[in-house]
Amino acid sequence: MPKNKILVSGNEAIAQGALQAGCSFYAGYPITPQNEIIAYMAKHMEQAGGAFIQAESELAAINMVYGGSAAGARSMTSSSSPGVSLMQEGISYIAGSQLPAVIVNIMRGGPGLGNIAPTQSDYFQATRGGGHGDYHLIVLAPGSVQEAYDLTQTSFELADKYRIPVMILGDGILGQMMEPVQLSSKKIAANTIKNWALTGCLGRKPNITKSFYLREGALEEFNLKLQKSYELIRKKEERYEGLFLADAKVILVAYGTMARIAKSAIMQLRSQGKKVGLIRPITLWPFPQAPLNVKNKKLKYLVVEMSYGQMLEDVKLAVGGRNKIEFLGRSGGGVPSEEAMIGKIKKLL
């Protein structure tokens, strides 16, 4: 057996990845289907030398993350859809105060109390900001437990690098499913110097974390600074996986768990000689533009989601009317099947 390979759930992999990345502050509130994260943190965070708090609500949890991050700690919370809705206020303040933070959303069905089935229906909330104001999160969508482990580590690095909240967006299947994970042996050191952090002003001028800009013109000036940073992130951090893009006539676009099911459908069709491919966005914001910006007008796309046409809007924006786009989506616990995808693709071919 390979060394350091373990069978672990997506939720636990995220928690382990976070500790590996030097996360030293976690606050959370229980909600299915992500409870394994808070339980893991309760068990291991203090041993790792960090601070763990079970908060009185998601509202408190996200503001504790605000505080933890303002104090300079790599800080994280995790929740599921209704809890993440509650966190939006705090996420907006974190973005406005340029604090790095990692927020995990293991999505469940909505609107309202919905259900706990796997879904991807928080795409808009995650990629459009969610809370008030002109801001973005970097949104990462792992497609496997290994990737959940790896991307959680990446998320802390991106958060520190750009001083931005980063969201890990997964569905209940990703959170609950167990898969082998190759653990990394190297600890990622928190290598960013946080000279803005609140540590007491010994030997320096006071630091202030704030998002309040009352003087005329000051907020616009600040927001333009954020926009500049977003532009840089768009340029440098778009990530996706492409499969059979060179000769594909129909390309499926799907992310997270949905992309795995799409892959199964593609492998079946490829074995029958059908020219289909896959684009799996790994960053949902920034949404990968390059693979969808192609000259071949005959190329067709099939967007598949566990929601009713949310990512579809980003695909349409990226494709810019050049190509035909079909959509297949289910929600509320329904998962588009391989058969349904194959049926749609065959009509498009």
Partner: peptide, 23 residues
């Protein structure tokens, strides 16, 4: 399910284990 998945992994296979969760 877990022991089957664990043993399959140790034999070098790809494996997924998906539990029903919640209520």
């Amino acid at each position: 399910g877990k022991v089957i998945a664990e043993a399959a992994m140790r034999q070098g296979n790809y494996v997924t284990y998906l539990p029903a969760y919640g209520p």
